[in-house]
Design a protein around this nucleic acid. Structure first.
Length: 634
DNA sequence: GTTAGGG
DNA sequence: CCCTAAC
């Protein structure tokens, strides 16, 4: 599958984003991609992380601080000036807010008591990323649409901040990318504080947290719970991108954020987080911010940092290592229901409900593994999972899946083998996944939430493995399965291989096992009886081979089980076999005609009369005799 | 891999 | 229908 689109990874004070060429949106990278980038860093030191497979011309944007100290976002493409203006406005507004918070902090410190906040809350600001670090506030460029940005980013960050805080790092060297296709520059000032994505909210007072809350959510809160506030703010900060796969950890009273997500040219994830997510509120914010900007900002403790991820400083490697480690540690625990609900609520409040996939799927609470379907590292978009989101819960690290296409109840060898024999299935799967995403995002109402909640987690995986034999006729069906689940149940004609009626039931082990119910039809029963009469009960595999060759979903075990039930039924109704007809219509299940049951009983008795010691050579004889007297029935 | 039996 | 011990 062609993945056209130049992928550019860069980082916003921690999060790894990437630019999707074509629409120019910034898309967070997924864990997988971060891993990959990590690999890049690890194995291809100093290599920029631009994956350009289209060779299209590259444009540049830069974010820098103007002489007045304001953040500027610039782009070489003139056509985007308006948008850049927006961005800049927002940046500046964020600076404003952060500045105020910082001043307040100063004041508080000097006065020894909290002072009233000066932060203008009326603006309904939803400043995307306000990082507060030990009293210093840092702003990140809000992650949002940057229209027409092409692939390459030329980021120039000229920060004049002189004050350093505990978190500041000594140096952030300028590193020139050595990649071929595009020129990527990263000019970063040494004063960019704090290690990647680390936010320290714990030293803020309740009031400050309130302010931050207001700034973040555009509304006031009366909650006194500091932890709650911090968490809430932190969540907003990390989730403000509306994208999944945010890594976010509270550790030792620090909020360590990891922000990862991915998208690729052929995925619609980009559209999910596109300008649509810019709510009216945010638009208003821009206006407000423009107005507020009049006062300007001098204090350079307000820092905005964007840097390309093509650096290879020791810090970077360190961060990478840490992130990897933390991520690994985080996979262990799953989020609690409450947290997920809270998160969902948060996102649904803060943003237009256009990311149903993420929100809904998060409610599933399944830990997803995102990578094992990926074929290779340089193909970013084969089978797409939407990644996972790391988040914090009471100081523990959790991973919240966003969309898990990945099966989890059955061993994946089936998939693997299928893929081996049907390489196209991969692509099909990817396409379908994309389609599903499209559908889910564009027309949510079309698919009831229930379906997603109850069906998707367990059904979005490989189909039944009940037929491992020769009849893998529809390997792709498995990929389509989720869609099939949404379709009305089809009739049950024999000889079909697609899977239906898949229901998941919880198992004792906590996993979900798939219950695949397909009612036995009368034809099948007849065939079974015929098969038993021909081959004898117990030779299920042979019966299957002879009589159920076209019924791929009936395994020999199924035959055996059904036979067992038939025996039970036949003997249960035996005492009064007198009446012909359909008296055995008990549970609404297919009424088995009296004839059949009688036949079953005959065979059973015959079988019991001729115990297993007949086995090898006499089986044929027994079958033969059966064959004779069966003529009347079948 | 197949069968038998329990769940 | 699933699981698994036993063959």
């Amino acid at each position: 599958m062609s993945c056209h689109g130049t992928l550019v990874f860069f980082q916003l004070t921690g999060p790894l984003l990437r630019v999707v060429e074509g629409d120019g949106r910034l898309v967070p990278a997924t864990d997988d991609e971060v891993m990959e980038v990590g690999d890049f860093l690890e194995y291809e030191n100093s290599e920029m992380h631009v994956v350009a497979d289209t060779g299209q011309s590259l444009e540049c944007i830069s974010i820098e601080r103007s002489s007045s100290g304001k953040l500027r976002l610039e782009c070489s493409e003139g056509s985007t000036e308006a948008d850049l203006g927006k961005l800049n406005a927002k940046l500046q507004y964020i600076e404003q807010i952060l500045q105020k918070v910082k001043e307040e902090e100063k004041q508080r410190i000097s006065c020894g008591s909290p002072v009233h906040s000066h932060v203008n809350v009326d603006s309904q600001c939803s400043a995307d990323k306000c990082l507060v670090t030990d009293g210093n506030v840092q702003s990140e460029t809000p992650y949002q649409e940057i229209p027409s940005i092409a692939s390459s980013l030329n980021y120039t960050h000229s920060n004049q901040s002189g004050s350093m805080d505990q978190c500041s790092r000594p140096s952030e060297g300028v590193i020139e990318s050595g990649s071929s296709a595009s020129a990527v520059h990263s000019n970063l000032k040494p004063d960019l504080s704090m290690s990647d994505g680390e936010i320290c909210l714990d030293k803020l007072s309740i009031r400050e947290l309130h302010e931050l809350f207001k700034v973040t959510f555009g509304r006031e809160t009366t909650v006194k719970d500091k932890q709650w506030l911090k968490r809430r703010i932190a969540m907003s900060l990390t989730n403000s991108c509306d994208v999944s796969a945010t890594t976010f950890v509270i550790k030792d009273n620090k909020i360590v954020r990891k922000f990862v997500e991915e998208s690729s040219g052929n995925m619609n994830v980009a559209s999910l987080i596109s300008s649509e997510n810019m709510t009216e509120e945010e638009d208003i914010n821009f206006k407000d911010s423009s107005a507020v900007n009049a006062c300007g900002i001098d204090d350079k403790q307000v820092v905005s940092e964007i840097r390309l991820r093509n650096q290879n400083t020791e810090y970077e490697l360190e961060d990478m290592t840490n992130q990897t480690e933390q991520r690994a540690a985080k996979r262990i625990r799953r989020p609690t229901k409450r947290y997920i609900e809270e998160l969902s609520e948060n996102e649904s409040k803060e943003h237009s409900p256009r990311l149903p996939v993420y929100n809904k799927s998060m409610e599933l609470g399944h830990v997803s593994s995102t990578s094992h379907v990926r074929p290779a590292r340089n193909t970013f978009s084969e089978v797409r999972t939407c990644g996972t989101r790391f988040a914090s819960l009471g100081g523990s690290d959790v991973e919240i899946p966003c969309v898990s296409w990945i099966r989890r109840s059955r061993p994946r060898k089936d998939m693997a083998s299928l893929m081996k024999f049907h390489p196209s299935a991969m692509n099909e799967t990817a396409k379908l996944s994309n389609k599903l995403i499209e559908h889910s995002s564009d027309a949510v109402g079309e698919i009831p939430d229930k379906v997603f909640k109850s069906r998707m987690p367990a059904t979005f995986h490989q189909p039944s493995s009940s037929e491992p034999e020769k009849e893998k006729q529809c390997p792709v069906i498995g990929a389509i399965e989720p869609r099939q689940e949404l379709r009305p149940k089809r009739a049950d004609p024999p000889g079909h291989t697609s899977d239906d009626n898949i229901v998941t039931v919880p198992t004792a082990k906590g996993g979900m096992r798939r219950k695949h119910h397909r009612a036995w039809t009368l034809v099948e029963v007849i065939k079974l009886v015929e098969g038993v009469s021909r081959c004898g009960a117990g030779r299920w595999s042979e019966i299957k081979r002879l009589s159920f060759a076209s019924y791929s979903y009936r395994t020999s075990v199924d035959l055996k089980d059904k036979w067992r039930n038939l025996l039970k039924a036949s003997f249960a109704m035996t005492p009064a076999p007198a009446d012909e007809g359909i008296n055995s219509r008990k549970h609404g299940t297919a009424p088995i005609p009296e004839k059949i049951l009688l036949r079953v009983r005959e065979l059973a008795e015959m079988n019991s009369q001729v115990p297993p010691n007949i086995s090898s050579n006499k089986v044929a004889a027994g079958a033969g005799s059966v064959h004779e007297d069966r003529s009347g029935y079948l």
